[in-house]
Design a protein around this nucleic acid. Structure first.
Lengths: 166, 166
DNA sequence: AATATATGAATGAACG
DNA sequence: CGTTCATTCATATATT
């Protein structure tokens, strides 16, 4: 059994300057934008032929067949990439908990990009908030509390891996 | 992008843990990979003459071993044998759900034997419990004398009904 | 190498 | 709201 992380003490903390941080952030943001544009382009080009129901990492985007009598075993709502991005954005600027009315609006808007219900939106925000907080608790138990920010303005999580077939 | 870098005075450095570094790296790596795949896919689709016979499994720009920054790194924590042993022991002790404080303690203790984070510990317990329950559910529907070596410190509720929502 | 299994991690939904 | 459960995904490891 070869175990990794045999180097203890050698690599511990890494220090980054604000500038370096900004560079990294910019890179991520740039990639995110590029990805989204590419996806949009792809969707436009493949208009109706690519009828593929994406599930999770296999195919993060692609609008689900609306009204389709899909009796698949998909028991759990899975947001599309676009939906996630919109939700993240709203969360970031969002003033705390979305009101009931706000949830309706969001749901309505996100319906344009896939099946979604108000409950889904509500749960999503609840989870997002809770996990954000928990992460904070884990990540920064002993830091200077001068940092009030919790999330990066740009994408937080990148859905990794994507399998495609031309 | 624009974030309030309040004081540009003496300390403009931010310290990141290895974990945070890894998250950033993963994000960039993931986006880079997605971009590559999207570009590749687009190229394949737009190129009308698809007279290629080679497998496209390997991308020409996967990652240069040298010179180019190998962004990928260890992506998954793997506990050492000692850590597993200790975790198992703690799990058996009936602490069904370690509190946040407890998790910190455990993490602190286990760091003596290898790299570990609080998130790792939290996930480990979550997974351990879920797995135990799953095993038992299948193994002992009508058998009271379960010989399972792993147990649930406290008997939990038997079964739950899942709700589907449209 | 290819496949199978084990398991760390992510997350939608439910519970108190 | 905070915590927990259940399911799924991705990868490390084992097996052939």
């Amino acid at each position: 059994m070869a175990e990794g992380a045999a180097e203890e003490g050698v690599l511990c903390v890494k220090v980054m300057t604000d500038e370096q941080m900004e560079v990294l952030r910019s890179q991520i943001s740039a990639y995110a934008t590029i990805c989204e544009q590419l996806v949009e382009m792809h969707r436009t080009m493949t208009a109706q032929q690519d009828s593929f129901s994406g599930t999770r990492s296999s195919h993060p985007f692609a609008d689900p067949p609306s009204g389709g009598a899909k009796i698949s075993a998909k028991q759990r709502w899975t947001p599309t990439a676009v939906q996630v991005r919109m939700l993240e954005s709203m969360f970031y600027h969002g003033n705390g908990t979305p009101s009931k009315q706000r949830i309706k609006e969001i749901t309505s808007e996100l319906s344009q990009h896939g099946q979604i219900s108000e409950t889904n939106v509500y749960n999503w925000f609840q989870n997002r908030r809770a996990r954000s907080k928990r992460k904070q608790a884990f990540a920064a138990p002993s830091n200077t509390e001068s940092e009030a920010e919790e999330e990066s303005p740009s994408e937080k999580k990148a859905k990794k891996e994507m399998h495609l077939q031309p």
